[in-house]
Write a protein that binds this DNA or RNA. Structure first.
Lengths: 210, 210
DNA sequence: CGTTAAAATTGACTGCAGTCAAAATGTATA
DNA sequence: TATACATTTTGACTGCAGTCAATTTTAACG
């Protein structure tokens, strides 16, 4: 690796490191780019040749973090467990990480779920990694008869993911305590697996189109 | 009403009107407070005695809009329809309004779901109005045997609301076309009603606690 | 009315995100 | 090594969100 490339990597790390440290110490809004630059030992302008904006520093950090989590998950996931248990582990692990850096997590979720650009979005690369983890679990679940086979994987994901988002949101807006998260998520996951209709009236086969 | 109060109302309306017009014309980021002030015929500082921040102008507008929608909904809702149909109407109506002002909708959702303040949140007042509409529908649904009675109303709401959020997010990030929204939402709602498990294995009674 | 207190309005001011032309540093070639 | 070119770094500069002390407008009362 050339001198140039080495320096670039070192600089990027320094910026990210300074940013994380300052954001966690003083909060995102109370940290200025100039402060980050000083702590990283570079000029202000340099930061903008590594990151598009203040927000994208967060995005860079979060994606790096989440990738780490994903690797962890693949390692620790137990193929024998039920879909419910595996989903709970995955989303609770993710939740724990998010809440360790609430500031980052919040801004990342905002940006990911309701992006600035509208439309042309580059998150698909990131979605892929999600699916790489979730799809096999769902596939196995279907094979074991735990999940309906007439629902696409994408839609199955959607149900769990949407509930995860809701619970996170409830925590961020102070409607639920951290200690209550796991139970709430479990309850919701169970309910969505079992359905909201009474058993007697359950008609799954999809012939109930109006 | 005193002269003072009249003027205040008029001024607030003028600010909101100028803001909406400019935001829709040039976008939120490209509109400055000073421009809004000029279009509203007031000084810059005045805006800050009516709104806490640039963001809260959006919030003010959205809450005003959503309140209008809610009234509409109560009027047009048909108690005889199935829970599925009523939920679809409610969330599709809301979706339509959000997407008429995508800029506003996006910022409102961000702020509502992942607020700045963290914890102390004043949205509970607004939640109430949501529940005033949804709870009666769910109550009726339970009475008619369309919905399980062992699930709290709050949790029943959670399922529908979370899917609504997911679909909106999918639209905002360009993963789904506007024309496909209704079908997607309907499919997801149906699935959550029927459950993700195959019928044969459905065990609703909640005695499957580990 | 005239006087005084309270409320509303204002724009100059502060601090920060993001830009950009110029300077510094690294690379390739003779 | 010297020269020319490419990449990276830099901080002065621009424009805007949000503040605040000073000013103007309204209300209350003798």
């Amino acid at each position: 690796m050339s001198i140039r490339e080495e320096k670039k990597k070192k600089t990027k790390r320094a910026i990210l490191h300074a940013a994380i440290s300052l954001f966690n110490k003083k909060g995102y809004d109370n940290t200025s780019i100039e402060q980050i630059a000083q702590n990283a030992g570079v000029g202000k302008g340099t930061i903008y040749s590594y990151f598009d904006s203040k927000k994208s520093i967060i995005k860079g950090f979060c994606e790096y973090e989440l990738e780490k989590i994903h690797h962890q998950l693949v390692a620790q996931s137990n193929e024998q467990s039920s879909v419910l248990e595996q989903m709970l582990i995955i989303f609770m692990t993710e939740f724990d990480h998010v809440t360790q850096n609430p500031e980052f997590g919040r801004l990342y979720l905002r940006e990911t779920l309701f992006p600035d650009n509208m439309g042309r979005n580059n998150a698909s690369d990131f979605d892929e990694k999600y699916f790489e983890i979730l799809f096999p679990i769902l596939e196995k679940g279907q094979q074991r008869g735990e999940l309906r086979e007439d629902i696409e994987h994408l839609y199955l994901c959607a149900h769990f993911y949407s509930l995860y988002i809701l619970v996170i949101s409830a925590w961020y807006s102070g409607r639920i305590e951290k200690s209550a998260i796991q139970d709430a998520m479990k309850t919701l996951f169970k309910q969505t697996l079992d359905g909201l209709r009474p058993v007697s009236q359950n008609h799954t086969t999809g012939n109930n189109n109006d």
